[in-house]
Amino acid sequence: MSRILVIAEHSAGKLNPSTAKVVACARAIGGEIEVVVLAADGASVAAQCAALEGVTRVLQVDHPANEHPLAAVLAPQIAGLAEGVSHLLGPSTTFGRDLMPRVAALIGAPQLSEVMAVESPRRFRRPVYAGNAVVTVEVAEGRQVVCTVRTASFEAVGSAAAHAAVEQRSVEFSPPAHTRFVSVSAPASDRPDLQTAARVVSGGRALGSAEKFQLIYSLADKLGAAVGASRAAVDAGYAPNELQVGQTGKIISPALYVAVGISGAIQHVTGMKDSGVIVAINKDAEAPIFEIADYGLVGDLFSLLPEIENLLAG
């Protein structure tokens, strides 16, 4: 039977919603599911992990060096817990992408990145070439495997009726001094988080300026939606980098995705094509975004957005 170790992602005492999706992937593999929380003081996060459906037990590893998620600090501790584990899973967020390959190299295991489907405990599907192809891959029997899980492909597990046990673990380990955390930019707003929001409004280069990009924030606020942006809009300085949706940004699957002034380059489409309903607003009727949109509207976004806001209010 499989024994699966899920690496929890968290910040400021809060479990990142990606972890519940990674646990969903672990359940699809099947077996014992352990979630490990590496933190300075992980009690609160461990309790949140224990409440996730399908979790067998939670391992809480407290160490002052775990204050910030540095891969060089966390990876050796995870490697130290990997004995007897068949699968090690992390989210395909920047946290997991940074950390998991370091773990894989330490334990001499292959890694499957961006796992989107589980066909068997040894057989998985993952996208390559910016989602232009999907490969089905098989891991040799008897080999441990590390996966980063494409969170947009899995529904978060719910809460468990009975909470899993939390075990304190101490890891023999001297934290490396060669890597130091300096700072991280604070979350910019109290808007919904782009990665987990049910609705997202994204703007592209057609917005024309950072000032006019405020139209996107305005519509998003009306909808209770998170704000996203195309790479072109981010590169032009209309929106900060953490809002970028696409192959090299965030890959998301909200129930509603509204693409405003976005042409639909494959780079961007990779990041949003799993959305429930896609709405595209663009002045160019030939824009490729309309090929994948459920609802397309051709017109001038500067007159359409205020009009839509009014209609939503009515």
Partner: peptide
């Protein structure tokens, strides 16, 4: 050491093209 075998390649699942609406009112 190559413990992972690619069994097959598939094109990605395609989204079907939806409908074009004529104005903001129809969209909302």
């Amino acid at each position: 050491d190559e413990p992972v075998t690619v069994l097959k390649w598939d094109p990605p699942p395609q989204r079907t093209k939806g409908i074009m609406v004529k104005d903001a009112a129809e969209l909302v």
